[in-house]
Simulated assay, not measured.
Amino acid sequence: MDTLITFFEEQAPWVQSLVGLAALIAASLAVNYVLKHVILRVLAPYLDRSTKTIDKSAAWAATVAPLMVISQGIRLVPHLPEAIYTVITNVAQALIVISVAMAIVKALAYGNELYERLPRSKNRPIKGFVQVVKIIVLCGAAIIMISVLIDQSPLLLLSGLGAITAVLLLVFKDTILSLVASVQLTSNDMLRVGDWIEMPSMQADGDVIDISLHTVKVQNFDKTITTIPTHRLVSDAYRNWRGMSESGGRRIKRSIVLDQNSIRFLSDEEVVDLKKFRILKPYLAAKRDEIAAYLKWHPRIGEGFTLLVRQLDPGPQGLPIQIYCFADTTAWGEYEDIQADIFDHLLAIVPEFGLTVFQEPSGRDFAALGSSR
């Protein structure tokens, strides 16, 4: 060993520097290999195998060790100019700051993934808050990294931020608005992943699939994706159908328009004439009871909800008779079947009372009129 040291000292200064740098690089690579390819592989079975985020966090944390070897060991390399020592040390320390920051960012992402596995995460997502913390960590890391590179105190950089506050507010305007909006959406439980929302101003009509700091993604029913700035969900109007989904019933609100010329009283003679047909008596009695109770006994009309059959204001097209009730399901297909079944029955039963449904004349009607003339 003494002979090797003596031989090394007898070499030219540039050879000593080159050998020292090679040894330092080899040492840092060895430390990096041991940490990432030995220790992390040993620990791998004990880490969460359902995600790669924790692996990335551990990898970034392991990067700190070889950088520290370079940062602290560069002074052991002989015959280097002082400026080289300073540059390599500062760059290594800056990279350490980046590695630590990225390890924290990935750890935060993993924490959010763990939270999203909990049932309450659907009602109280924290993704927006996690992204805010990430921004703070990265901004802090950027300030420290710059201060390390220029070999100045971070307080010096922070003192200069006051002069560019207005610029920062302008640059991060959307982020600040989105942060406030995220807090409002979460604290007031205004939006959850899985909610069906309608927002005509953004051409969104579908299910919320992601809520982040800056954007909310909505998968429309035609399978397109609409991206909405988070702050727009506070400043603009939108409809959330969650209340309907949780109630278990969906409203049916539709009208049939009767021709007003067909509306009249049934004369006494007509009543007497009808009663003369004994065969019709059971039919008429049953039909009257069926019509009177049709909506109430319908098996798919939800109980405990408002049920109305009412007249709306007469208009040029006729007299609207509105059906206002609730289906006992929120499933789209079943809802449409129930609604169609009700109005199929109503449209079919209208002629039984001598009434007609109003309909704008079509080309076929005009052709029939011309033929009759």
Rank of each mutant, 00 (worst) to 15 (best):
E10P: 05
A12N: 11
A26D: 11
L29F: 15
A30L: 09
V31A: 06
N32H: 15
P45Y: 14
T63M: 14
P66M: 00
L67H: 10
M68D: 14
L76F: 11
L80R: 13
E82Q: 09
Q93L: 12
V97R: 09
V100A: 04
M102Q: 12
A109I: 06
N112H: 13
E113I: 00
L114Q: 03
L118K: 11
S121G: 03
V133H: 06
L138R: 01
G140W: 06
A141D: 07
A141F: 07
S147A: 01
L149Y: 09
L149S: 08
I150Y: 14
D151H: 08
L155P: 07
L161W: 02
G162L: 05
A166H: 14
L170F: 14
L179K: 00
A181T: 02
L185P: 10
T186K: 05
R192V: 03
V193F: 10
I197V: 12
V218F: 02
D222C: 10
K223L: 00
L233Q: 02
R242T: 01
M244A: 09
G248I: 00
G249W: 00
R250A: 13
I256P: 02
V257R: 11
D259P: 06
Q260C: 04
I263D: 05
I263E: 04
F265C: 02
L266N: 05
S267D: 15
V272C: 11
L274Y: 01
K281D: 11
Y283L: 10
A285Y: 14
I301F: 00
L308K: 06
P314A: 00
P316K: 15
G318P: 07
Q322V: 04
F326N: 02
A327T: 01
T329Y: 09
A331D: 15
G333F: 14
E334F: 08
E334T: 03
Y335F: 09
I338Q: 04
A340D: 11
I342P: 10
P351Q: 04
P351Y: 03
T356A: 03
V357W: 02
E360Q: 13
